[in-house]
């Protein structure tokens, strides 16, 4: 643990940075830990590309006169982009840990980190369950990529805002920090 994970950054963002056809993969065990002040453009941009790929599926469904709100594959892909982005944010925790002299943290159960991820995952799934029917109600004939992205990000923002104000999340983030501090070596 600790340090920059170039493999992940490449796998996630090649699509944007190099134009390759890599799929955006979710690797909870191996997320980047130090994104740097400007890397956020890469990660946000990579999410945009992923959302663009989901948008293509929606356009196709509209063209074919199919409902897309029940499309499980689409819903999962949209939720995965949320999940990856949220994990990337909280992935900075590893970097924060690296600044503490806490040799025993590696051995902890990561209970509260997993709890955070679980909370985030559930919130993402629920947000997407609401987003797709709402989009279907719109004038989807004229739904463009920008609108689709803003709708997705807006739904994520609302869900995230509720998530981080919940007691469960606050408890989890508090315990993550407590665990870090407790594991730190006493000089």
């Amino acid at each position: 643990m600790g340090g920059i994970d170039d493999d992940y950054a490449r796998a996630s963002c090649d699509n944007l940075a190099n134009g390759s056809d890599h799929e955006y993969t979710l690797r909870q065990d191996n997320h980047p830990t130090d994104v740097g002040p400007f890397q956020k453009y890469l990660f946000s941009g990579a999410c945009y590309v992923q959302i663009g790929q989901c948008y293509a599926l929606v356009k196709q469904a509209i063209e074919q006169g199919r409902n897309f709100s029940d499309d499980q594959q689409l819903r999962s892909r949209l939720a995965a982009v949320w999940q990856n982005y949220v994990i990337q944010q909280s992935g900075a925790m590893s970097s924060a840990y690296a600044g503490l002299d806490a040799p025993n943290y590696e051995d902890q159960q990561w209970h509260w980190v997993h709890k955070l991820y679980q909370e985030a995952q559930q919130a993402g799934i629920e947000a997407m369950e609401q987003l797709l029917p709402a989009l279907e109600q719109m004038d989807s004939e004229h739904l463009d990529l920008q609108q689709f992205f803003v709708s997705w990000a807006g739904a994520c923002d609302q869900a995230y805002s509720r998530l981080i104000r919940s007691d469960a999340f606050a408890r989890a983030i508090g315990e993550v920090v407590n665990t870090m501090l407790g594991a730190a070596k006493h000089e």
Binding site: D34, K40, Y41, S44, G45, C47, Y48, Y85, V86, Q89, S90, A92, M93, S95, A96, A98, G99, L100, D101, F149, V150, A153, G154, C156, D157, Y160, S161, I164, I173, V177, M180, L181, G182, A184, H186, E187
Partner: peptide, 27 residues
Amino acid sequence: NPQNIPGTLITMLFQMMRPFEDMIRQV
């Protein structure tokens, strides 16, 4: 067990406050 808190932890907490607003701005 007083020890200094790494700035990266503070950065992380601030960045966790509204990441999707940040994402829209970055895009």
